[in-house]
């Protein structure tokens, strides 16, 4: 138990090598960003399909609004370059 605690402390204090390489951390950031995008698009997509089903003219606005949460993942993508730089 105590052994594990000291190990955990070593990781938290980043003694030795860091627990996560910068690139790995960036990968997690991108992944979480993608997850957020997915959650947001789920609702918007459902509503968009409903709107288009009622009125074909809604197709373009529906596509725009469905694509809006993509900005989340694009911003998350930036972290890769920040982490590498």
């Amino acid at each position: 138990m105590i052994d594990a605690t000291t190990q955990l402390a070593a990781v938290a204090l980043q003694q030795g090598a860091p627990a996560l390489e910068p690139v790995a951390a960036a990968a997690i950031a991108v992944g979480l960003g993608a997850l957020g995008t997915g959650i947001a698009q789920r609702s918007i997509g459902a509503a968009a399909v409903g709107a288009v089903a009622e009125d074909r003219d809604m197709l373009v606005p529906a596509l725009i609004f469905t694509a809006l949460p993509e900005t989340l993942i694009i911003i998350a993508f930036v972290t890769i370059f920040v982490a590498q730089g």
Partner: peptide, 14 residues
């Protein structure tokens, strides 16, 4: 429940 889908359609019909 699929509130998003149904409300979108209903609002359009409304």
């Amino acid at each position: 429940s699929n509130y998003e889908y149904v409300t979108a359609r209903v609002r359009s019909r409304r």
